[in-house]
Write a protein that binds this DNA or RNA. Structure first.
Lengths: 255, 255
DNA sequence: CGGAAATTTGAGCAATTTCAACATGGGTGG
DNA sequence: CCACCCATGTTGAAATTGCTCAAATTTCCG
């Protein structure tokens, strides 16, 4: 973001057009954002902690936020690294505990739109369009997690890293020929659940997968296929089949 | 289930009281289930396949269903093993693709309640209570996936297996002192993303974690702690803190 | 220009997979 | 009722891969 002059309208615009809100009409958008405020955090500031009562949910409008958990056995797991337009606490919003399950820290200087959860939740349920959008959001989130689990099991580290870099490129609309890593390698390693050393040793192997990393520069040798190599679990088409031996059970409810 | 006489009312009752419907009033429940039918599948029958158009979503009322994906690189990943009361295709319902991302196969003879997705989705959005319940469901689902990712990274295989068995026990209200495995070990291994051999070799190590497995019999040596050892990512309480250096940005929307 | 932080590289170790052989067990057909 | 067979699970040993600890570089920044 431009330094010096703070363009709050621009930042607000980002929030307003963040999924799942982008599809709503402008009147509805206004409603959803009443009561929300824009906050600024400095690098390394804690935005919320594990166990904190859940009072706001968050839309990152500028900068980078690390979201992670500390497990009982002392490890620290980076769940995600959020940039422009990301929504935090999606799932917590609809878990009854009413607490944060993760900790969020500003990796860089950051601007965050914060919306009180209670009114937001209530408005959401009253608007079918918004509810659907949010359901879609959560569904995507689940799907993404599942994809990650699958990758961890079926792909070797080099494939996982290559896939991550392609995803990163795609997700943020970066140059498909290559880009500069937006954050530290150690953060990526943590995000991928591997050690920094392993990550580092993996980089040279990426050439076999059409990716070169030199310093913080990432280059794709096959720009066209960047999108294609991002995992989609694409199911191949099959001829339509009859239900094998499913038997429908006639049923009549007894009042 | 009792053999011979098919108690369809009982099976229907299960479906009706499956989350997220249990909280709705009975009139609303009726509405949600109109258009649904009970199907019977024999062991090994395919219920739906990856890539199939998404026409129904499913509630397992009796038996065991394996849900899995075939990845591009030829592996087969068991996403979940569903028993009594489980809901399938939760997330697909709200992904726009309108196709199944997984394949479901009956592991045993099975009864499944099938509801057409379109009317169900529409009704869901019109009912704030139902929408909230479903949002809660998806949120839990996401959370569970995340927990799994964390386990895979922070725990060793023995811990993961022990955790799984405890979870299984708890989730299905089995005897906290021990139970009989409801399905094959190879299925469990697949579900946990490990090889059958690894699973097999891990079983003797479970004693260190208070679990003994002999054949298909599982015994917990510490019944009291079964619940406690199920992962919850329980965040410890901390004293309330001030926001560190967050700065609120005054903002006024320019019409 | 220094010193600290971040990353790379090396060597040995631990754990899981792989391939292969062996055991178990239930079920079926004679 | 028994022998055999196939599915399932167990056990061994080698190969692979990521991790840990340590040291050497490189990059940042003040």
């Amino acid at each position: 973001m431009a330094q010096g002059i703070l363009d709050t309208n621009h930042l607000h615009h980002i929030a307003l057009n963040t999924l799942p809100f982008s599809g709503l009409d402008s009147r509805e958008k206004e409603t959803f954002f009443s009561g929300g405020n824009l906050y600024s955090y400095k690098k390394k500031d804690v935005i919320f902690r594990q166990g904190d009562p859940l009072e706001y949910f968050y839309i990152v409008t500028d900068g980078i936020v690390q979201e992670f958990t500390r497990t009982n056995n002392g490890h620290e797991i980076t769940q995600d690294i959020h940039m422009n337009g990301a929504i935090l606490c999606k799932a917590e919003l609809f878990l009854q505990e009413g607490i944060h399950h993760t900790e969020a820290v500003a990796v860089s200087d950051v601007y965050v739109m914060e919306l009180p959860v209670k009114p937001f939740r209530e408005r959401l349920l009253k608007s079918p369009a918004a509810a659907q959008a949010f359901l879609h959001l959560l569904a995507q989130h689940s799907f993404a997690k599942q994809t990650e689990i699958e990758q961890k099991v079926t792909m070797d580290t080099a494939e996982i890293v290559a896939s991550f870099l392609r995803q990163l490129c795609k997700e943020h609309g970066l140059n498909p020929r290559g880009f500069t890593l937006p954050y530290k390698k150690s953060l990526i390693a943590s995000r991928l659940g591997i050690e920094l050393e392993t990550f580092s040793r993996t980089l040279p192997k990426l050439k076999k997968h059409g990716v070169t990393v030199k310093g913080t520069q990432v280059i794709f040798h096959d720009p066209a296929s960047t999108a294609a190599n991002v995992p989609t679990s694409a199911p191949e088409k099959r001829p339509i089949q009859e239900r094998p031996s499913a038997v429908i059970i006639p049923w009549r409810r007894v009042a």
